[in-house]
């Protein structure tokens, strides 16, 4: 169980805005996160990952406290072991597809499995600037999965994929999440995208 109760002041177009989130995420659940642009969806994911600090509140994962402002506890992103898919993919321009995955894990069998899920087997020696937008996005997803995380935070992870590729990949991911026992939080603007697989909903803003 991941229990979140946090507050963060956001500098928004309209002035200061308070992002307040109180929510529990059941292990193995897939939560779809929606909300208008600039409402703080990305900030929320980054706070969970330990990349941005909330102003106050707590984040607990099972019995471990990840963040507690009052006790001055703030676990580093490295220790939270989260899989994160960035909206801008954040691929490393110097690394090939294979090197991205090898940077994250030594498990060759797992790397090969991921490559086949992402249909990137024939592109292992390509660097990101020689991949299409959809391939780059798939690589970002695979890299996030490489460490076999228990919590996956995905910031619009399917936006660059065509419908056919998307539905095939989502099916594969769903099975993978079950295998890993992973909890997933997915920011999505497309209402139909996660139909049938998301088990919970979180609306941020408004």
């Amino acid at each position: 169980m991941i229990a979140v109760e946090i507050e963060k002041k956001l500098k928004a177009y309209k002035g200061l805005q308070i992002l307040l989130i109180k929510k529990q995420f059941i292990p193995g659940s897939i939560t779809r996160i929606t909300g208008p642009s600039g409402a703080g969806k990305t900030t929320f994911l980054k706070m969970l990952a330990g990349l941005i600090n909330p102003d106050s509140g707590t984040i607990k994962a099972g019995n471990t406290i990840w963040f507690d402002a009052s006790q001055n506890i703030n676990l580093s992103p490295q220790k939270r072991r989260i899989g994160f898919v960035f909206q801008d993919y954040a691929l490393f321009p110097n690394m090939t597809v294979k090197e991205h995955l090898e940077y994250a894990t030594n498990d060759t069998a797992w790397i090969n499995r991921l490559l086949s899920i992402g249909v990137l087997e024939t592109f292992t020696n390509h660097k990101p600037n020689h991949l299409s937008g959809g391939q780059q996005q798939r690589l970002a997803i695979l890299r996030a999965l490489a460490t076999k995380p228990k919590l996956l935070l995905m910031d619009e992870p399917f936006s660059a994929l065509d419908i056919k590729m998307k539905s095939a990949l989502i099916k594969e991911l769903q099975a993978l999440f079950i295998g890993l026992g992973a909890t997933a939080l997915i920011v999505s603007h497309n209402p139909q995208e996660l139909d049938g697989i998301s088990t919970a909903e979180l609306e941020i803003g408004d």
């Binding site: 330990g50 580093s76 992103p77 490295q78 960035f86 954040a90 691929l91 940077y103 996030a144 460490t147």
Partner: peptide, 13 residues
Amino acid sequence: PQSLSQASYTLGK
């Protein structure tokens, strides 16, 4: 981009 280092941190580096 800042996300490069952030991505690396989330991979435990």
